[in-house]
Each structure stands twice: as C-alpha cells, then as structure tokens.
C-alpha cells in the first residue's frame, strides 16, 4: 500500500499505465507514462525493473522496453504469460490503464548505444524476446536513414507472433526493414517453417560483413543464433545477446546436496542454503528485503555483501572493483560454498 515503498534504497518512480494492447492470447503490451508526463530517458534495448506486489510478496521483475526513446511520450513493455510466472501472470491478469506501477530507471548493457554496432543490424528474437529488438528497430527507423534492418522472429504459430500487425506495418512501410518470421507451424508460405538452424540462418542472412547482431529469447535459442553467426563468419565483436533467463547462474560442478547456513544478522534472519540454490532465492525465502529484478546477473539490483564465507559467482556485472574487493556479490548469480554471513 505504501505507494513508493521499496525494499532497498533504490529509486522507484511511479509509472502510470496508459494503454493495454492484447498481442496474442497470452501476451499483452502495456504502455506507460511518467507521473508528470515528462519523457523517460533510455537506450533502445534496455529494460526497466518494476516493483509489483503479488499477494503479500513485493517482487521485482525486469522487462525490456519495446518502445523507442525517439518517441519519448510513452514507454511500453510486452508481457507474455509464463507457466508459474508470478509477476508476468499477475500483470496480465490485473494490470489495466490507470494503474500505477513503481519502476526503476531503465538500465541494461544490451542496447544499441553502448554495444558496438553498425547501421546494418540483424535482430534475432523469439517469443517475448521481441521487445528489445523491436525497440532497436523502431529507434533505427526513426533516427538513421541509412539503417538496414533484418528482423528475424521465431514463434510457434502465427497466432503466437507478438506485435504481428506492427511488424507487418513496419515491413510494409519501410523498405529498409526486412521481416522474416520463423514458425514451427506456419500457415502460409510467407513464413519460414521449422526451428532456427544453420541452414535457415544462412538462407535468412545473405551476408554478415558490416552487420551487427542483437538477439533476445530463450537461452537455447540465443545459443543457436550465436553458433550460427559464428559459423557464418560474423565479427563476434558485433554479436550481442540479452540474458534474461532465470537460473542463468552456472550450475555445473555444483553439489546441491550440501547444505550451509546463511545468516543476515542485521535482519535477525537465518536460513539453510544448499549448493544448488542461489543466494537470491534463499534470501527471498527468508524474507530479506532483497530486490531480484533481472535474476540473471545483469541489472545489479540484488547486490549484497558477503561478510563471511565463500560463494561461487557466475556474474559480477555492474559491480566495481572496490565492491568486489569488499565482498559484494550478485545474489542471483552466486551460490554458497560454505556457511555465509551476508548484509544488504
């Protein structure tokens, strides 16, 4: 109920939902404005972290922006229903125009401005991974007359294509926007059939020289794109992938049967943690006020300090050298290797 309450000293600003567009049976786009209608600065491809109360839990989730900063009057995210997904499903079930959600400032290294890129881009996405890619496409179409965009999007069926009308409109109105849809079960010959593989990649991508590639989607999909791009001879300095995938922390070599104690003396909390659990899930379970936004070692929202004990971390993104030296880790990407004492 505390409209601006946050678990940690992170700045949240109220964002007002202004529109809801049903994209597919299980996905919708939500548009937002700031409380005073001032423009919200961000880079194409970046995400925004929302604070959402679900039942009695205060949860944080990152969603890539599908809008373009070249049209700053409104921002948009697209949310797809996820089996067991607490926040996405809650938003799809309850979020309507007029509702307010607290959101953090947009962030993310996966963006067209900070990543090494050219005017010629290959945008590979699947499912709800379309959002940062269409943001990049929209930005380029608005700002770079030299842009050449190959937009390759994978979905199961035509009915599952998110923003189908918008993609078709961009394809029709912009000669420099080339849409290729890859569907598992296509209904027309205009779409490509099957899953993305090297053969299809080579057919869809006539050349890679001078191109940049951005991809977002399930981890397996992005790995395929990466393999194909490498094999095709893309300069991998120009390959960029988003990494929203819960559980992205490396599980290899972990003995999840070993159990340790995690203590947070400042909050008077203690919990057991096994070698396979992330600090984040255990800290959340213990009721500690940790913000797990991207949950993938990207956004840095779950930064915490390990005062005693050892952890293995698969990501140190956003942490400075001084923070790392002081024992700061990302809770989502760290697993216990001994008993731990942590502080937020």
């Amino acid at each position: 109920m505390d409209q601006m309450q946050s678990a940690q000293a992170v700045a949240f600003a109220p964002l007002i939902c202004t529109d809801r567009i049903e994209e597919t049976v299980d996905a919708a786009t939500f548009c937002f404005r700031t409380a005073d209608a001032s423009p919200l600065g961000y880079k194409p491809g970046q995400f925004i972290t929302f604070q959402v109360d679900v039942a009695d839990e205060q949860l944080h989730r990152a969603y890539s922006l599908s809008s373009t900063p070249s049209r700053p009057e409104s921002i948009a995210i697209t949310v797809k229903r996820v089996p067991g997904g607490k926040v996405s499903n809650h938003l799809l079930d309850h979020l309507r125009p007029g509702h307010m959600l607290p959101g953090m400032a947009p962030a993310g290294e996966f963006n067209l401005i900070d990543c090494r890129a050219t005017s010629k881009v290959l945008l590979f996405s699947a499912g709800s991974g379309i959002t940062p890619c269409i943001s990049i496409a929209r930005w380029l179409l608005d700002t770079d007359p030299q842009a050449e965009i190959h937009f390759i999007y994978s979905a199961r069926t035509a009915a599952d294509v998110i923003m189908a009308d918008e993609l078709a409109r961009l394809d029709a109105e912009h000669p420099n926007f080339n849409l290729e849809r890859v569907l598992s079960q296509p209904e027309t010959s205009a779409d490509h059939q099957g899953r993305l593989d090297q053969s299809l990649f080579d057919r869809l991508v006539p050349e890679v020289a001078g191109y940049s590639l951005f991809t977002c989607g399930p981890a397996e999909y992005m790995a395929t794109v990466k393999t194909c791009a490498q094999a095709r001879g893309l300069d991998m300095d120009y390959f960029h992938q988003e990494s929203f995938a819960p559980g992205a922390a490396n599980d290899e070599g972990v003995d999840s049967g070993v159990s340790y104690q995690l203590q947070a003396p400042k909050f008077g909390k203690a919990a057991s943690i096994n070698g396979g659990q992330s600090l984040l899930e255990v800290m959340e379970g213990a009721g500690l006020p940790v913000i797990g936004a991207c949950r993938s070692g990207v956004c840095g929202s779950c930064k915490c300090q390990v005062l005693a004990g050892e952890v293995d971390s698969s990501s140190q993104a956003t942490l400075t050298d001084a923070e790392i030296a002081a024992g700061y880790v990302l809770a989502c990407s760290s697993k216990a290797r001994s008993d731990l004492v942590v502080e937020l």
Binding site: M1, D53, L95
Partner: peptide
C-alpha cells in the same frame, strides 16, 4: 490524497 490507483488485490 492518493495520486494513483494501484493494481487491485
């Protein structure tokens, strides 16, 4: 007063 409506629960 409350400036916004929150998602109902």
């Amino acid at each position: 007063g409350f400036p916004y409506e929150e998602i109902p629960h």
